[in-house]
């Protein structure tokens, strides 16, 4: 392990240590926050009892559907729009301001239309993730240097072969950035939706615990989500960095 990682670990441990001390000494009241050690103990109990697994199945299922949809649709739309420069120029201002629209205001509407089931949550996750994939697909295809198309022609390659054997491999690291963001955004979308209004899932469980003043469960689940999502996001991030390094970018 290198020095940077050690320092980083130290910073994180110090942060939780400080929280622990503040909670234990009563500077932070137990009605506001419970000590991190108790969160962990409580979380273990929840995991053993199978309560976490139930919520997690639903949440992960929705996230998976939302992000697979977002990745495939986002890639297809991105590649299509890239081929039509005029449409692309007209869409650009909408793509760049898309995330300024606070999406979750649509969620109540979706629940209203489709009922209280998984579909509205998947929709929110999808809507939140798909544009990141579109933007990164366009970005990746933009970055392919013109000289590669010349090389392809020198090798007597047609349009389809050029796309498959040269353009796609070149764009992969950027496409993967889109995938990484799509996963993170699907999580944000689905969990936020569960939190606001939902029949189940981890976000709902936190919101439910909050409404019932059950701080132990609430903080245990919070810890769980934050750790789970951080592990997933950071693994994708590490892989992305490896791809980028291999491409020398």
């Amino acid at each position: 392990m290198n020095r940077l990682t050690l320092i980083r670990l130290g910073v994180i441990v110090a942060f939780f240590g400080l929280l622990e001390i503040l909670c234990r000494t009563g500077v932070i009241s137990p009605f506001t926050m419970i000590p991190p050690s108790e969160m962990a103990i409580e979380l273990w109990a929840l995991i053993v009892s199978g309560e976490v697994a139930r919520g997690m199945r639903q949440t992960l299922g929705n996230v998976a559907v939302a992000c697979i949809l977002a990745i495939t649709v986002g890639f297809a739309v991105g590649a299509g729009v890239h081929a039509l420069p005029r449409l692309r120029r007209a869409l650009d201002p909408f793509l760049t301001t898309y995330y300024a629209v606070p999406f979750f205001v649509f969620y109540p509407l979706l629940v209203f239309i489709f009922g209280m089931n998984n579909f509205p949550m998947i929709m929110i996750g999808f809507l939140f993730a798909v544009v990141a994939m579109i933007i990164n697909t366009l970005n990746g295809l933009d970055k392919i240097p013109r000289v590669y198309r010349k090389v392809a022609r020198m090798h007597h390659m047609g349009r389809a072969k050029t796309a498959l054997l040269i353009e796609l491999p070149y764009a992969i690291p950027n496409l993967f950035t889109g995938v990484k963001l799509a996963v993170a955004y699907s999580f944000i979308g689905v969990i936020a939706a569960e939190f606001i209004l939902a029949p189940g899932g981890l976000g709902y469980a936190i919101s439910f615990a909050y409404d019932n003043f059950d701080n132990e469960t609430m903080y245990a689940l919070m810890l769980f989500i934050l750790v789970l999502v951080t592990i997933i996001n950071m693994s994708l991030h590490a892989y992305e960095q490896r791809l980028l390094r291999r491409q020398g970018r």
Partner: peptide, 17 residues
């Protein structure tokens, strides 16, 4: 592009993958 001609360009065109 006819057969028998090869070209090397100014830009780096090695395939990074």
């Amino acid at each position: 592009v006819p057969d028998g001609i090869g070209a090397v360009f100014q830009e780096d065109a090695s395939f990074p993958w």
